[in-house]
């Protein structure tokens, strides 16, 4: 009896408290960043203005004055959207082939793709930079889109492969018998059936592209520079511009946080798909 009462007390009070606690802990840095973005650079480092200060919009206003936030944002959108689309364009057929027409090498190919993620990015940094400059693509959208696609392909293929595996083979075969060609199988049967999985894969890849910094910072200067580059450009060793930095960061992560918020359900569903089944 006592145990039952205790456990129900835990689930009605303890669990929400715990959940809120963990949630706030994770949310705190974001909150802090947003808060700081409304302080002047001078106030930002003064402990007495920790919570109580005169809020200012200057950081945000200066942002569009001093440097063209919208250009960075546009580059981020162009590269992230294009890279996501291109990644899907390649990974959907690839995962389809591996899920429904596996060969003896399929497992090895999957492992090999995963293993490319184990290579430290820094190891290929200079070759990449020389290569990009050599073929004249340094600081171009096409380069960034290619790089973002390449680094995300393994994950996309793995995720999609897992979703496609859940579709009964019979249904694809029924399609073949009903006169569908390979492209039709993908369009008429696979995509509608795996829609949820494809959407969450797309969403995740988009977020990864948007947040990518290692390559976008190093392979761009101006023309193809994304929001990651903008944040990086506002970094100062002395930490003098905390307010400005926070504003830029907030403006950079803002869109993705909003997107993530609206697609919460989709994301959670997508990421736990395999686990629930």
């Amino acid at each position: 009896m006592a145990i039952v009462a205790q456990s129900s007390k835990f689930s009605s009070y303890g669990r929400p408290v715990l959940a809120w606690g963990v949630g706030l802990l994770f949310f705190f840095p974001i909150f802090w960043m947003v808060l700081t973005s409304f302080k002047t650079d001078a106030d930002a480092v003064k402990p007495e203005y920790l919570f109580f200060f005169t809020p200012t919009l200057d950081n945000y206003l200066n942002m569009t004055d001093n440097y063209d936030y919208w250009r960075f944002a546009r580059n981020s959108v162009i590269t992230s959207v294009s890279a996501t689309l291109f990644t899907l364009f390649v990974s959907v057929p690839a995962a389809y082939a591996m899920a429904f027409n596996p060969t003896r090498a399929t497992k090895d190919v999957l492992m090999w793709m995963l293993s490319t993620k184990m290579l430290p990015a820094a190891a290929v940094l200079y070759p990449m930079i020389f290569l990009a400059k050599g073929i004249g693509l340094y600081d171009t959208h096409i380069l960034i889109i290619t790089v973002l696609s390449l680094i995300n392909l393994p994950i996309a293929i793995w995720m999609l492969f897992t979703y496609f595996k859940e579709i009964p083979k019979d249904i694809i075969e029924a399609g073949k018998m009903d006169g569908v060609n390979t492209w039709g199988e993908i369009k008429e049967i696979l995509v509608p059936l795996a829609w949820g999985g494809i959407a969450s894969t797309a969403l995740l890849i988009f977020i990864f592209c948007w947040n990518e910094a290692y390559w976008t910072v190093r392979l761009t200067t101006i023309d193809a520079a994304t929001l990651s580059k903008l944040i990086e450009g506002n970094r100062a060793p002395e930490g003098l511009f905390f307010g400005r930095l926070s504003a830029v960061s907030t403006a950079a992560v803002g869109p993705i946080v909003v997107l993530g918020w609206f697609c919460q359900k989709q994301l959670v569903q997508g990421l736990t798909f395999g686990a629930v089944k």
Binding site: P168, D170, I171, E173, A174, I189, L193
Partner: peptide, 8 residues
């Protein structure tokens, strides 16, 4: 098919 394999 034994499983019917209808398009769900």
């Amino acid at each position: 098919f034994q499983s019917y394999a209808l398009y769900p």
